[in-house]
Write a protein that binds this DNA or RNA. Structure first.
Lengths: 242, 242
DNA sequence: CAGTTTTCATTTGTCTGACATTTAAATGTA
DNA sequence: TACATTTAAATGTCAGACAAATGAAAACTG
């Protein structure tokens, strides 16, 4: 008997859903081996290509991994933070680029989330993360830096800030917000003037964290948000003459 | 000539990556039609099943949708907030359940993020969201409510709080954090005593938002976090006798 | 007996070719 | 014109085959 979760269409989607449910509900545990493709085709009464399409769907979500050869097969995959980051970033980036999310909205969300990390970061900051932040600030002050490199450095700086909170779940959530903004930030041309302003604000943040002063750090982030918004507004206005 | 992004193995993964890049980079725009499976097999020099596996991978990430029939095919899909929510929730839930994330860590992240919304929510709260919150508080006070329903109501309450901030990007990010906690919360048995405590705290939050008092709301959220942590600790300790 | 090599069965990866089904446009008809 | 029919193009599904990888067991060697 077929599972017929939705009697409608697409066997491979139904099978993928059935297996996904088994994984999410905990019926299948990490590293457990799924039946072979041949066995699955029998169980679900479909052909092997159909089963394979279902498995590829799950693989695309990092729910399973496959291994060739004898005693190989498909295994329930432990979703690592790395993989989750990647998916989160892709999804968030597309969400922003495809849905005409305004620069203001994205900016507001990003800095609100970042400020959420600040108290924890101020409390737990360690030498490593502070060093990363200082190094990126230094790089951002270098004259010959391209706009793209400046943006990349900005992302590294902010990720270090987030990682300071020493909460992997927060880091995971924030990765999407910070990285998804990058395409929008890349549209901005950073003048020497604005770069120096940003470096100043970044320094204020690093100083505040080093002093474990959460309030000062939040305040600096507020100012940075306002300044970023200011920079972005002109560009976005020019981009949307409609 | 094959694209050979990674010379290593799995043609369908390579093809999926190639197409994904084209979408993410903006080379293909929303609603644009991909070449037919037959054409793609020619372009990439692979068989149709391989192309199909690649397309299913993309479909699993909601990057494309397919339509049968003449003039059907695969189209670049506009990633909706709905779909993004769903993926986010699945990923976040699995991340927590598979990586032995401690109740403390998850709790800390969730309330930190929620507090990030509070200033905006206090500023923009509208009658609708307040009404939802009040209604859920009322439900949470009803005697005959099952633990599961209580949890579900809790989620609804907190999502209303988040939606108050009227920033869809924020709502999207928070959806994962709030929903992913639910399986952990479901382990808790809510006594009449603890329910009434939670209702009190929820009321404090709603009152504070209604009064546009962000500070009071944050403070109430802090207390709620502490109380949730307290409730969870016992359960988690009992669950992990190792 | 210990260590190495070979064989071998199992499983995923890929290909070919075919048929079923769906869908909208094109065509035919009253 | 309005409606029914045909048709072409596309995805969905199936069956069977071969290639390639892989680890375990068997065979071999010193």
């Amino acid at each position: 008997m077929k599972t017929d979760t939705d009697k409608k269409s697409d066997l491979s989607a139904q099978i993928a859903t059935a297996i996904r449910d088994a994984i999410v509900s905990g019926d299948m545990i990490v590293d457990e081996r799924l039946p072979s493709e041949a066995e699955l085709s029998e169980q679900f009464n479909v052909s092997r290509p159909t089963v394979r399409e279902a498995l590829k769907r799950l693989a695309a979500q990092s729910l399973i991994r496959t291994q060739r050869g004898a005693f190989g097969g498909a295994f329930v995959n432990r979703l690592s933070y790395e993989e989750a980051y990647g998916q989160q970033i892709t999804t968030a980036t597309l969400l922003l680029s495809m849905n005409a999310v305004s620069f203001e909205t994205a900016c507001e969300a990003r800095y609100a989330l970042e400020r959420a990390c600040t108290p924890l970061a101020a409390q737990r900051r360690d030498a490593d993360h502070l060093a990363t932040m200082r190094a990126e600030i230094h790089r951002q002050g270098q004259p010959g830096l391209s706009d793209e490199s400046f943006c990349a450095s900005d992302v590294t700086f902010h990720r270090a800030l987030v990682d300071c909170a020493a909460n992997p779940v927060l880091s995971y959530q924030l990765a999407g917000a910070v990285e998804a903004m990058q395409p929008l930030m890349n549209m901005i041309t950073f003048t020497a003037r604005s770069r120096s302003e940003i470096v100043t604000l970044h320094t204020r943040i690093a100083d505040a964290l080093e002093a474990s002063d959460a309030t000062a750090a939040e305040s600096a982030l507020h100012d940075l948000e306002a300044y970023t918004l200011h920079l972005g507004r002109d560009v976005m206005a020019a981009r949307r003459p409609a």
